[in-house]
Deep mutational scan, measured.
Amino acid sequence: KRPMNAFMVWAKDERRKILQAFPDMHNSNISKILGSRWKSMSNQEKQPYYEEQARLSKIHLEKYPNYK
């Protein structure tokens, strides 16, 4: 399994927050909201998630050096 990208790292927690506020919301609607919110974020706001992506990718590479 591939490591999560920056959007997926961010969306994991955000999806949970949306589901708590709107438990009956369909997954497709949540995904649209998440995509819209991510697009509206500045690069500075996204930076911690890109850093986490890099950390996860490094761990993945160490654990699975032959993964293609």
Rank of each mutant, 00 (worst) to 15 (best):
Y64L: 12
I18K: 00
V9E: 05
K68S: 08
R55Q: 03
F22C: 12
I33K: 07
I59Q: 11
I33E: 07
S57D: 14
M41G: 02
P65Q: 12
K12T: 11
R2K: 15
H26N: 15
A11D: 02
N27R: 09
K46W: 00
R15Q: 04
R2L: 14
Q53G: 08
L19D: 04
E52I: 05
I33A: 03
R55T: 06
H60G: 10
S57L: 13
F22W: 11
N27D: 15
K58D: 14
K32F: 05
F7D: 00
I33N: 05
P23F: 01
P48R: 04
E51N: 07
E52T: 03
S57R: 11
D13F: 01
K63A: 12
E45A: 06
K1P: 15
E62R: 05
V9T: 06
F7K: 08
P23L: 01
K68Y: 08
Y64W: 10
I59R: 10
W10V: 00
K68C: 13
H26C: 14
K17Q: 03
F22T: 12
Y49D: 02
E45T: 01
K39N: 14
E51S: 04
Y49R: 04
Q44Y: 09
K63G: 11
A11T: 00
K46N: 03
S28E: 14
L61I: 11
S31T: 12
N66D: 13
N5I: 02
E51Q: 09
M25G: 02
Y64G: 14
D13S: 05
N5F: 01
E62G: 08
S28F: 10
S36A: 14
W38L: 00
D24E: 10
A54S: 09
M4F: 06
E51V: 09
Y50T: 03
D24Y: 08
A54Q: 08
N5T: 15
N29G: 11
A11R: 02
I33G: 01
A6V: 02
E51L: 04
S31L: 10
L56C: 05
P23W: 00
I59E: 15
I59A: 14
A21D: 15
R15A: 08
V9G: 03
E52W: 00
R37G: 12
D24P: 02
K32Q: 10
L56Y: 04
Y64E: 14
R2H: 15
Q47Y: 04
I59H: 11
K12R: 12
I18R: 00
K39S: 07
W10A: 01
R16A: 13
G35M: 12
D24R: 05
K1W: 09
E45F: 01
L56A: 07
S57I: 06
I30S: 00
A54I: 08
I59T: 13
K32A: 10
S57W: 07
L61C: 13
L34W: 00
N5K: 02
F22I: 06
K17C: 02
K39Y: 06
P3F: 03
P3I: 04
H26P: 15
K17R: 08
Y49M: 00
M25K: 04
L34C: 01
P3S: 08
L19P: 02
P48F: 08
I30M: 05
E45W: 01
E45Q: 07
K63F: 05
R15Y: 10
N66M: 09
N66S: 10
I18S: 01
L34P: 00
W10L: 00
H60N: 14
M4E: 13
L19N: 07
R16L: 14
H60L: 04
S31I: 12
P65H: 10
Q44T: 11
I33Y: 07
F7P: 02
Y50R: 06
R16I: 14
N5S: 15
E14N: 06
E51K: 08
N5Q: 06
R16W: 06
I59S: 13
E51R: 05
N43M: 10
M25T: 07
Y50W: 10
H26I: 10
K68H: 12
K17D: 01
M41K: 06
N66V: 09
P48L: 04
A6M: 01
N29F: 13
N66Q: 07
D24W: 05
Q47K: 10
R2Q: 07
A21T: 06
P48S: 05
K1Q: 05
P3Y: 11
K68D: 09
S57C: 09
M25E: 03
S42A: 01
S57Y: 09
S31G: 06
W38R: 05
D24S: 02
A54H: 09
N27Q: 13
S42C: 04
N43S: 12
E51P: 04
M8H: 14
N27C: 12
A11P: 00
Q47L: 11
L56V: 08
A11C: 08
P3T: 09
K63M: 11
V9A: 07
Y49L: 02
M41N: 03
L34S: 00
Q53V: 15
K46F: 01
N29M: 14
K32R: 09
M25W: 02
P65C: 10
I59Y: 11
W38Y: 00
S28V: 09
Y64A: 14
N27T: 08
K32V: 09
I30Q: 00
L61F: 09
M41H: 01
Q47I: 07
R55P: 02
P3A: 06
Q44S: 10
Y67E: 15
Y49T: 03
D13R: 05
E52Q: 06
E52S: 04
E62A: 09
E14G: 02
N43Y: 13
A11W: 05
R15T: 11
A54G: 07
P65V: 10
Y64Q: 13
P48C: 04
Q44L: 11
L61K: 13
K12N: 10
K12I: 08
Y50V: 09
